[in-house]
Design a protein around this nucleic acid. Structure first.
Lengths: 116, 116
DNA sequence: TTAATAGTAAGGTATTTACTTTAGTGTCAG
DNA sequence: CTGACACTAAAGTAAATACCTTACTATTAA
């Protein structure tokens, strides 16, 4: 239902190299905005917008102390995306396994069970 | 490098409810375009565009026989996205675990190892 | 052969992105 | 107090998205 919008925001946030780079950096520990911006090939305000997208998706959190804002990863958010993916994978792996079984059965000259 | 573009396409493809719905449907087996389009709240051509996005991302494959095009899931593509996510998770779970250990150690009145 | 079916091509539009530059606002160091 | 610093706000722009409608092309069925 509206779990869908959550996934929209999540996957959309991950669909950008700058944002993924930020997440990779934050995986090694919290960092202030300017440090996150430094390696990126864009202006500071542009980086800020990316941080906004990441925060709206719940992938990071940030707080300002004095004049510096420190960002950190928010691990739970990502796992929702992961859950959706693994759910899909399980589903079709199951399907492919059944197909595999079926084919192996045929090879063995099986097929004694009418397929309904 | 250009693995990045692959992830861009992948995550972008997943960032849309219609496209995720299509993948969920295809998880239960291959289907022709018109069957995929039926439950979606949009025109057939719009659905076709979504299929194009999914195919460009490598998430599905399709072939036309006669006048009907049959679509099926392409399991490998998704696993690339999955791999990126789990890599991240491992990274920061490791970090959080080390933090956790550190905190537990403090509680126990530890801290006999200079944190250099 | 004709008519319905399944998909495709083309073109148009409103909205959303991903940036930019410029101009601030608060905070801290000297 | 003053200037440098870290960020933020605003406004503008080019390109990409996600749709639409309206043709059109094959294919199959009657």
């Amino acid at each position: 239902m509206q779990r869908s919008q959550e996934l929209d925001r999540l996957f959309h946030a991950l669909a950008d190299p700058a944002r993924r780079a930020i997440l990779e950096r934050l995986g090694r520990g919290p960092a202030p905005v300017s440090e996150l911006a430094k390696p990126l090939p864009m202006s500071l305000p542009a980086t800020m917008q990316h941080l906004g997208v990441l925060e709206a998706a719940g992938l990071i959190r940030s707080q300002k102390v004095g004049r510096t804002r420190t960002c950190a990863i928010e691990p739970q958010a990502m796992s929702r995306a992961e859950q959706w993916i693994t759910a899909r994978r399980r589903e079709w792996e199951g399907r492919l396994d059944r197909l595999d079984d079926y084919l192996k059965n045929l090879e063995r000259g099986g097929d004694r069970h009418g397929s309904k």
